[in-house]
Amino acid sequence: MVRNVHTRRFPVASDALVPLLETLGTPEDRLWPVADWPPTRLDGPRVPGTPAGHGPVRYVLEEVTPTRLRFRFTAPAGVHGHHEFLIADGTLTHVLEATLHGSARLSWPLFFRPMHDALLEQLLDRAELALTGAVARPVRWSPYVRFLRALGRPRRSRVRAEV
């Protein structure tokens, strides 16, 4: 069983976080770090049953309240569980809980977890910036995350001049 939690407390009332969460997955998204990661998108209205995802990760919206968004994973294969965003007491929390099967037992710790952790910390940085105008301690990608990102970068083909 995987349980992965990212949380940050902000010097604001919870009500100030709700408008940020409302933008998640929309063209006006103020949380998702789209400059560095594939955007997360809702493929329809913000109601239970709406498909969503980012990159190879797909999910279905299961629960929507002003202070909670919960998604059930549908891909990648072998990942069974959910992830959710929660707001309480001036805190934004992301929780991922899943059981892993097959190749996901290797892909989660070797690839998805380090990338997920970096992405979520950047998301919390964006929330901090939106709420306070600054980020006290911006996340820095680990050398391993930089390595994984370099592996995923499309290679430029070298064109040889024909003589």
Rank of each mutant, 00 (worst) to 15 (best):
A13I: 03
D117A: 06
R41K: 07
R3V: 14
R41H: 04
R70N: 13
A127P: 08
L148V: 00
Y59E: 13
E62N: 02
T91L: 04
F111T: 12
V12A: 11
L123M: 08
L129E: 12
L148D: 02
P114R: 00
V12S: 09
G25A: 02
G133M: 05
L31S: 03
P154Q: 13
E128D: 13
R41N: 00
R155A: 15
V47W: 02
R137G: 10
P45N: 10
E28K: 07
S103I: 03
R9C: 09
F85R: 08
H80W: 04
G55T: 08
V139L: 13
L123T: 11
P27W: 02
T26D: 00
V47M: 06
V60E: 09
H80Q: 12
A75Y: 04
V139H: 15
L129A: 04
P39F: 00
W108T: 00
A98C: 00
L86C: 14
R140N: 11
Q122A: 13
P27Q: 01
P48D: 01
V2R: 05
G44R: 11
F112Y: 12
D125C: 10
L86H: 13
R149H: 08
A52N: 07
L119N: 10
G81P: 00
G25H: 03
V57P: 03
V145T: 03
R146Q: 10
V135I: 12
R113V: 05
V47G: 10
V5G: 11
R156C: 02
L123Y: 10
P27E: 04
V5H: 08
T23V: 05
A130N: 14
G133H: 02
P45K: 15
R149S: 09
V79H: 02
T7N: 12
S14C: 01
W141I: 02
L24V: 07
D15P: 01
R137K: 13
D36C: 05
R8N: 04
D117Y: 03
F10P: 06
R158N: 10
P76W: 02
Y59D: 08
P19D: 03
P56I: 13
R153A: 14
V79E: 00
R137N: 13
D89M: 09
T50S: 06
R155Q: 12
V34C: 11
N4S: 13
L42W: 09
T65S: 15
R149N: 05
R70M: 12
A35M: 01
G78W: 01
V18G: 06
T26M: 02
M1R: 11
A127W: 11
T50W: 06
D125L: 13
E84V: 03
R149I: 11
T93I: 07
R70P: 03
G53M: 10
F147N: 05
R140I: 07
L17W: 08
V159N: 12
L86F: 04
H83E: 06
T7I: 09
H94W: 15
A52V: 07
Y144I: 01
A130S: 09
D29V: 03
S103W: 14
G152P: 00
L21K: 12
A16K: 14
R126D: 07
G25F: 01
R149F: 04
R30V: 02
D36M: 09
L17I: 11
H94D: 15
R72A: 15
V95W: 04
R146E: 12
A88Y: 05
N4W: 14
S103A: 11
V34H: 07
L24D: 06
A52Q: 15
E121P: 04
T91Q: 13
F10N: 11
R3Y: 05
